[in-house]
C-alpha cells in the first residue's frame, strides 16, 4: 500500500509547474526513501530527475516499492484547480487496479476533490543516471534561479525563438559566465560577473572553473529548464564538453530536481 500526505499542495504544484510543459509523462518510483521521478521529452533531448525524500511528506507510508507511469498533462490540470493550502493525499493499493488516487481537501470549507489517474507507459524511463565525479566538469556556475530565468527569457525574446534550433552558447572563464545567441539581425551577449563576497548580495553568482569552456545548447530546452526556479532560488549549472550539462535546483534539504541535456556538437 502507498499512502502519502502533504499538508500543502504548493510543493507538488511547483513540481508540476517545473516539468509539465516540456515532459508529457513521467515515471514515479515510490520506495522507502521517498519519491524518485524521471521523464524524457518526446525527442529524447532532455531528461529530468526529481528526488523528494520521505521527509518532504507529512505522512509517508510505502511498504513496497511501487513504480508507475503517469500523464503529467492530466496531473497538471488537476493541480491547477487545487489551492496552495489544500491537503493532498496520494494513495495506491497493489490491487492491480493500475490507478493512483490524488485527494485534495481544502481546509477552510472541507471541499474534497478526488482524481484517479490510470498508469500509462513511460517512453524509456527510468534510466540509470551515473553520478559523474566533479573532476569531469570543466566548470560549475551557481546563480540565482530568477536571474537564470530572466536571462533565458531575454535570449528567447531576442533569438529567433520561432525557429527550431535557436542556440545559446554558454562560456565560462574564471571571472564571468557569458550567454550568447544569434538573432535574425544581430547577436546578443549577456555577461554575468562572479559576485565578490564583499558585495554580500543575498544571492551570489559563483563560478568554479577548472578550465575555460564554451558550449552550445538548444535555447528552447534551456528555457524550459529555467522553470525549476519554482522549486529553488538557486540553480547550479555543471558544464562538460563530453557529458550532459546538469541544471540542478536543490529543494530545501528534501531533494532536488536535475535537468540533463547534451551540448550541441559541430555537424
Amino acid at each position: 500500500i502507498l499512502e502519502l500526505r502533504l499538508v500543502q499542495a504548493t510543493l507538488f504544484k511547483n513540481v508540476l509547474e517545473a516539468i509539465s510543459d516540456l515532459f508529457s509523462k513521467a515515471n514515479f518510483d515510490f520506495s522507502g526513501t521517498g519519491l524518485e521521478l524521471q521523464a524524457m521529452d518526446t525527442s529524447h533531448v532532455a531528461l529530468v530527475a526529481l528526488l523528494l525524500r520521505a521527509e518532504a511528506f507529512n505522512h509517508y507510508l510505502c511498504d513496497r516499492d511501487l513504480s508507475m507511469g503517469l500523464n503529467l498533462a492530466d496531473m497538471a490540470k488537476a493541480f491547477r484547480c487545487a489551492n496552495n493550502d489544500d491537503i493532498i493525499t496520494i494513495k495506491a493499493e497493489e490491487d492491480w487496479s493500475d490507478t493512483v488516487t490524488f485527494t485534495f481537501e481544502s481546509p477552510e470549507d472541507g471541499e474534497i476533490s478526488i482524481f484517479d489517474f490510470d498508469f500509462v507507459g513511460t517512453n524509456g524511463v527510468p534510466l540509470e543516471i551515473p553520478e559523474f565525479p566533479e573532476s569531469e566538469y570543466q566548470a560549475k556556475v551557481r546563480m540565482p534561479s530568477a536571474k537564470f530565468m530572466r536571462i533565458c527569457k531575454k535570449l528567447s525574446s531576442f533569438g529567433d525563438s520561432g525557429d527550431r534550433d535557436t542556440v545559446v552558447i554558454i562560456s565560462v572563464d574564471k571571472e564571468c559566465v557569458n550567454f550568447f545567441t544569434r538573432g535574425k539581425t544581430g547577436t546578443s551577449t549577456i555577461v554575468c560577473r562572479q559576485t565578490q563576497t564583499v558585495d554580500k548580495p543575498k544571492e551570489p553568482t559563483l563560478i568554479e572553473m577548472k578550465e575555460q569552456v564554451s558550449l552550445a545548447f538548444d535555447l528552447r530546452y534551456m528555457n524550459s529548464f529555467s522553470k525549476g526556479s519554482t522549486l529553488s532560488d538557486q540553480v547550479t549549472i555543471s558544464l562538460s564538453s563530453n557529458l550532459p550539462a546538469v541544471f540542478e535546483y536543490k529543494i530545501a534539504e528534501t531533494g532536488y530536481i536535475r535537468y540533463y541535456m547534451l551540448p550541441r556538437i559541430e555537424e
Binding site: 534510466l127 551515473p130 534550433d165 547534451l262 550541441r264 555537424e267
Partner: peptide
C-alpha cells in the same frame, strides 16, 4: 550548424 545528441542513447551507453 550544430547537431543535438540523444540523452537516452547517451545514458544507455554508460
Amino acid at each position: 550548424g550544430t547537431k543535438q545528441g540523444n540523452i537516452m542513447s547517451f545514458f544507455k551507453k554508460m
